[in-house]
């Protein structure tokens, strides 16, 4: 299974008026692969995620998930195929309890009993038991991130997109997140957007670098982080 292609993006382009946020991006992801996506602010990473999940329809290019063309499909249709996303700004059900959030994630097309089982497993896996009955809107930012990750995991998707999962977390939480990502990666493919280079090193994998909407380079983590061009774009210099 690991050799099969899970996601195949060809020439994906997203234009907003005169601005090209994502410019002819090609990206191939294998089953159960872990990929990091880095790049300076405005490089088009979040826009790219929105195209993958159907929140934005690409101006041109195609996106295939397991050989099925999902370009321009509705977000719920893409989600049903097995794509889950934790967005950059936490997208949670603020007025509901942690448990209810995760339940909604688990409950689609499953028996209530099975969903409840997934909820209790997910809650203990992410150590959310102690706050299971709290209202999510009242939790700290870091905790809300965890709730969102739990909701996505409860969906049991085959591809998980994480947009800055470690943002706003303290050191211990970052370590736990890295550990969790490695654990998830045993069975599921992930694409992780992150700025924290230490964090990238912790989950070490293939890294794709975005800059100004294009793929600057794609290589394993050691090479990417040693690359002068990558350093330059992060420091605000533009690569040649």
């Amino acid at each position: 299974m690991t050799s099969g292609t899970l996601l195949e993006v060809r020439g994906a382009t997203m234009r907003f008026g005169g601005v090209t946020a994502v410019d002819t991006v090609d990206l191939t992801l294998r089953e159960v692969e872990l990929r990091c996506l880095i790049g300076p602010n405005g490089a088009g990473k979040s826009t790219f995620f929105k195209m993958l999940t159907g929140q934005l329809v690409p101006s041109s290019g195609t996106i295939q998930f397991r050989g099925k063309d999902i370009t321009g499909s509705n977000p719920h249709e893409i989600a049903r195929l097995g794509v889950g996303i934790k967005t950059q700004v936490p997208n949670v059900f603020n007025g509901l309890s942690v448990r209810e959030n995760v339940f909604i994630g688990a409950a689609r097309r499953k028996s209530i009993k099975h969903a409840r089982q997934i909820v209790s497993e997910t809650l203990s896996r992410l150590q959310l038991d102690s706050i299971a009955d709290r209202i999510v809107g009242q939790l700290a930012h870091g905790q809300r991130q965890w709730v969102e990750i739990a909701t996505v995991l409860a969906q049991e998707p085959d591809l998980i997109l994480l947009d800055e999962p470690a943002a706003g977390m303290n050191h211990a939480e970052v370590l736990r997140t890295a550990e969790l990502i490695r654990e998830i990666n045993r069975t599921q493919a992930l694409v992780v957007v992150e700025h924290d280079m230490q964090f990238i090193r912790m989950i070490a994998s293939t890294v794709t670098v975005f800059n100004q909407g294009r793929v600057l380079m794609e290589d394993d983590v050691g090479h990417v982080l040693a690359d002068q061009r990558v350093r330059d774009v992060y420091l605000g210099k533009q690569a040649a």
């Binding site: 967005t87 059900f93 603020n94």
Partner: peptide, 23 residues
Amino acid sequence: RFGRVVVAIRENETRAMLIGYDP
């Protein structure tokens, strides 16, 4: 389950959609 999803959509339509519910 239907009612719980209805309330979830009230809370955050985008999230419900990204889970796979059609609001």
